[in-house]
């Protein structure tokens, strides 16, 4: 283990450097996410993830946000274990009828102010599962949604970009 840790001291980090200037969207994301988050939420935004019926594909990519390449915590974004610790609910899946109540209870447990991000095509309108006897539909059918991030599943970069858009809305609502 010592050897591995020692190597890490000298090897350049996996974490991708602040994106190059020509990568406009991602650069904007890295800088303004930091600024907006700091101003509004004191450098941190706590996210609670809820799978309300997904196939688990979105969860895999949300996990990837935590790997060394994306290192979501450097932006002040952190996944927490309890809705009571959260500012944001990230909800995946078409909401199944069997998860509707649990989702509602989880939302109610998040202290205000709070925001909801619906992740994936299913979170928008039920996606390819819409119309089933067992599915309610998109997340907005059950709790108010502030932002949809499309994709099946969305890439980690798309999710970072979506979280930025949310922060800007949060920020403008606070100053407006």
């Amino acid at each position: 283990m010592r050897k591995l840790l020692f190597q890490s001291l000298f090897r350049s980090p996996f974490t991708e450097p602040a994106p190059s200037a020509d990568d406009a969207a991602v650069t904007e994301l890295a800088t303004s996410l930091g600024r907006a988050a700091r101003r509004r939420l004191g450098r941190s935004l706590s996210i609670r993830e809820v799978d309300a019926g997904s196939c688990n594909g979105c969860e895999l990519e949300i996990h990837a946000l935590n790997n060394a390449y994306y290192d979501v915590e450097r932006f002040g974004l952190r996944f927490v274990a309890s809705p009571r610790h959260a500012d944001v609910l990230m909800v995946t899946g078409p909401v199944t009828r069997n998860m509707r109540e649990a989702l509602k209870l989880t939302y109610d447990a998040v202290p205000g102010p709070k925001w909801v991000v619906a992740v994936g095509d299913c979170g928008r309108d039920g996606g390819c599962f819409a119309g089933s006897y067992a599915v309610v539909g998109g997340v907005a059918e059950v709790i108010p949604v502030d932002l949809h991030i499309p994709g099946c599943p969305p890439t980690p970069t798309a999710m970072l970009q979506g979280l930025l858009a949310l922060l800007e809305r949060v920020d403008s609502a606070a100053s407006g």
Partner: peptide, 9 residues
């Protein structure tokens, strides 16, 4: 909990 009714669809 995540029964989506896939076989029905």
């Amino acid at each position: 909990y995540v029964h989506k009714g896939i076989e029905g669809l």
